[in-house]
Amino acid sequence: MEALISIDYTYDFVATDGKLTTGTEGQSIEDDLVQLTKEFIENDDFVVFAIDGHDATDQYHPENKLFPPHNLNGSMGRELYGSLKTVYEASQSRDNVYWIDKRHYSAFSGTDLDVRLRERKIYKIHLTGVCTDICVLHTAIDAYNLGYEIVVHEKAVQSFDLVGHKWALGHFKNCLGAEVR
């Protein structure tokens, strides 16, 4: 069994009027990201939705100094974007679909993701979502440090920074030994 980790493909990160949007770049990966997600769900592989969630009153979170308020708990901005939302809603009762609330860039930081993967004997993860050079990158680095085999789906990741996006794709391959498909 393998796992697909879908990272932060939410309204605030993808919609044109999202609070910290990747805009058209993020929107351009929707079809590939959704198709890949459907395939993993239908194949009974483990699918994790690792979604950024912030508290508007949290004065200590370091991102508050770097970015405008985004993905606030309970807001529309934190909802999955586009047809991915429909895919999740149709499959959330399945045993192989899991939602993780995350506070930091990495889906591993402060979550039970590593435990969930290891109890299923999963050592190969596939990464999709946004932002390539932030949350996807930090998740990949933690996965590398934990000994996971990593696959990054190039047509299913994107960022608001094209230079950072391209740099991260190279970093996945050249420094983390990831397969970039």
Results as ranks from 00 to 15, higher is better:
residue 75 S to F: 07
residue 33 L to P: 04
residue 15 A to W: 10
residue 61 H to Y: 01
residue 177 G to Y: 06
residue 48 V to A: 14
residue 94 R to V: 13
residue 41 I to R: 12
residue 147 G to L: 11
residue 135 C to A: 12
residue 97 V to T: 05
residue 180 V to F: 02
residue 159 S to L: 14
residue 56 A to H: 07
residue 106 S to D: 04
residue 36 L to Y: 14
residue 84 L to C: 08
residue 46 F to E: 14
residue 127 L to C: 09
residue 113 L to K: 05
residue 103 R to V: 15
residue 117 L to I: 06
residue 22 T to H: 11
residue 148 Y to K: 00
residue 106 S to F: 07
residue 175 C to L: 09
residue 28 S to W: 03
residue 66 L to N: 11
residue 142 D to R: 14
residue 24 T to F: 02
residue 68 P to T: 04
residue 34 V to T: 10
residue 57 T to Q: 13
residue 101 D to I: 15
residue 172 F to R: 00
residue 137 L to R: 08
residue 42 E to N: 10
residue 84 L to I: 15
residue 9 Y to W: 06
residue 25 E to Y: 05
residue 175 C to S: 15
residue 160 F to T: 01
residue 5 I to C: 04
residue 125 I to V: 08
residue 11 Y to A: 05
residue 73 N to I: 15
residue 114 D to L: 09
residue 54 H to D: 12
residue 168 A to K: 04
residue 140 A to C: 04
residue 135 C to Q: 03
residue 46 F to K: 01
residue 145 N to K: 12
residue 122 I to V: 11
residue 135 C to K: 00
residue 177 G to M: 07
residue 108 F to H: 03
residue 164 G to K: 05
residue 162 L to V: 15
residue 72 L to E: 00
residue 92 Q to M: 12
residue 159 S to V: 04
residue 117 L to K: 10
residue 154 E to M: 08
residue 55 D to W: 11
residue 110 G to Q: 10
residue 56 A to T: 07
residue 47 V to R: 09
residue 12 D to G: 01
residue 86 T to C: 13
residue 176 L to H: 00
residue 147 G to V: 11
residue 84 L to R: 04
residue 38 K to Q: 11
residue 105 Y to T: 01
residue 88 Y to P: 11
residue 141 I to K: 06
residue 29 I to S: 04
residue 28 S to E: 12
residue 176 L to F: 02
residue 174 N to K: 10
residue 153 H to V: 13
residue 51 I to N: 15
residue 17 D to G: 11
residue 51 I to D: 07
residue 173 K to H: 13
residue 108 F to I: 10
residue 31 D to G: 13
residue 140 A to M: 06
residue 172 F to M: 00
residue 178 A to Y: 04
residue 70 H to L: 02
residue 78 R to C: 11
residue 116 R to W: 05
residue 164 G to M: 15
residue 172 F to H: 01
residue 168 A to I: 01
residue 142 D to N: 09
residue 85 K to S: 07
residue 9 Y to K: 01
residue 172 F to C: 00
residue 125 I to D: 02
residue 175 C to Q: 08
residue 66 L to S: 05
residue 34 V to F: 06
residue 64 N to C: 15
residue 144 Y to P: 01
residue 69 P to I: 08
residue 148 Y to P: 00
residue 177 G to D: 03
residue 149 E to P: 11
residue 68 P to V: 02
residue 38 K to Y: 11
residue 169 L to Q: 06
residue 10 T to S: 03
residue 69 P to E: 07
residue 92 Q to A: 13
residue 18 G to P: 02
residue 132 T to H: 03
residue 63 E to K: 01
residue 158 Q to T: 06
residue 34 V to S: 02
residue 132 T to N: 03
